[in-house]
């Protein structure tokens, strides 16, 4: 039997839930006994993904955010999904320093951080339907 585990979260797109989401994911992952750095990298990536869903997906209206975390031996897959407005140009959104909302003092580093803190990042988005971010990381 392979050692696998799954958890799902569903919560409202309120900014107060950003802290809750990253701590809940970190707490689930801690069964793998990751290093402090690995755990912090994952927390930061989750925080970026959830913030994107709130600020860009729902544009500060209230919708639902869904997180699924799968553990497969030492491999972690985190999916962060919203049913918001979607991303028009994913390639552009992933460019370092690009932000669609410069007036908000956003740094445009969200996707860059997710990419460099995790091993793999996939973004699926469809206008008017929502965005799903899948991040993978292997812990040692």
């Amino acid at each position: 039997m392979k050692d696998t585990n799954v958890m799902k979260l569903e919560f409202l797109s309120k900014s107060t839930n950003e802290g809750f989401a990253r701590v809940a994911v970190a707490s689930f992952i801690s069964q793998l006994d990751p290093t402090v750095e690995e755990l912090s990298d994952i927390k930061t990536a989750v925080s970026e993904a959830v913030t994107n869903a709130i600020v860009h997906g729902y544009e500060n209206t209230i919708g639902k955010i869904y997180i699924t975390v799968k553990i497969d031996e030492r491999n972690i897959t985190i999916e962060v999904k919203d049913k918001g407005k979607g991303i028009e140009n994913i390639e552009k959104a992933r460019e370092p320093l690009y932000t669609s909302k410069p007036q908000l003092e956003r740094s445009g580093m969200g996707f860059t951080i997710m990419e460099s803190f995790m091993d793999k990042l996939t973004v699926r988005s469809s206008l008017g339907k929502g965005t799903t971010i899948v991040m993978k990381k292997r812990v040692n």
Binding site: T44, E105, R106, S107, G108, M109, G110
Partner: peptide
């Protein structure tokens, strides 16, 4: 103990 990219915008601003 924790800062994400929002902090970059905060410091830069």
């Amino acid at each position: 103990n924790f800062m994400d990219s929002s902090g970059i915008g905060m410091v830069m601003g």
